[in-house]
Design a protein around this nucleic acid. Structure first.
Lengths: 173, 173
DNA sequence: GTCCATGCAAACCTTTTGCACTATA
DNA sequence: TATAGTGCAAAAGGTTTGCATGGAC
């Protein structure tokens, strides 16, 4: 069949699996079915997946892998830098592979519908440089989330209610 | 004694307590001893306090307030916008009052010693404007943390080991 | 054959909740 | 006095760990 994947040599193994296997070998760790399966689920999706999402996707593929193994594999994927871990304040973490056209990006999260959109920001490099020069701080990893109302929710007429004090931020004490 | 606080009229009540009390009254909620005590601890400190920190500080003042009450009061303080909630990835939240000379600021966190330093960034406003114009997203709240090595740790000779893949970020799939 | 991974269940930790009792307004 | 808060302990929910078994190399 013309749609059959070419399995000659390494060609049948997708790049992300080769990279993950390389990482595991470098660390002297075995490449297991479960580890490959978790990686496959992550790299097959462009969403920000929770552990439950991953477990569900695995089950949908007929694989029954324990949560503990998923957590342990995610730890390896994050260490390998093939996967990024995020916390959008939902009480649990989400995971996203980093082999996209936009390996470095930030997130805006709609506080109404929860939709996560990615965007790039070179202003961040400027901020990091300033931090380096002005404070002698050596940046390694950053984390920028912007919470607000997405276009769709605004157009649907959603408005945000502010119940906080209107102007408590006077610089007094 | 000349150092004794002036207790005439409202003058003895510090501004933050007046603001918190105003918020509570606005919401039709009672002003209780416990709520005032939690607020006092937060406003007396310029650190980023965990719930345990707060409980300990209260105990040090001879007040024994249940964790549940602390959590419930923190919720009110955050809603009132007098206090900001942070998650530095430690597995628990930290809280910081917002009546400082720098009510809006970001954080850099040293991955070695855990020290948190604050800095301001007007580049962030530029980012938010871009997000608004380019994506129609209405920003409400932002969250920027920069993780890295603080000056002191660098000077102490600390180096960070990278165990991840050196260059996995090729834009291939 | 050795070493490590897996799976299950129990443990862990922070945060939330239910309920009898107490304090605020 | 009505209404809401407090404190305790239990529950909840995500994540980690111990241990016996099974798989990778």
């Amino acid at each position: 069949m013309s749609q059959t994947r070419d399995v000659t040599a390494d060609q049948g193994t997708p790049p992300f699996l080769r990279l993950f296997a390389r990482y595991l070998r470098d660390q002297g760790l075995p490449v297991t079915q479960q580890r490959e399966a978790v990686a496959e689920v992550l790299f097959a999706s462009d969403e920000h997946l929770s552990v439950d999402d991953i477990e569900r996707a695995l089950r949908g593929r007929g694989e029954r892998i324990g949560k503990a193994t998923i957590y342990r594999t995610l730890d390896l994927l994050v260490r390998s830098r093939l996967v990024a871990e995020h916390d959008f304040g939902e009480g649990f973490k989400r995971y996203e592979h980093r082999l996209s056209a936009r390996p470095v990006h930030e997130h805006m999260i709609c506080v109404e519908c929860g939709t996560v959109t990615e965007f790039e920001s070179n202003e961040l490099y400027r901020i990091e440089n300033r931090v380096k020069n002005e404070h002698g701080f050596l940046p390694v990893r950053r984390n920028l989330e912007i919470y607000g109302l997405c276009k769709a929710c605004q157009e649907a007429g959603v408005e945000l209610t502010t119940e906080g004090l209107i102007c408590p931020i006077e610089t007094v004490r």
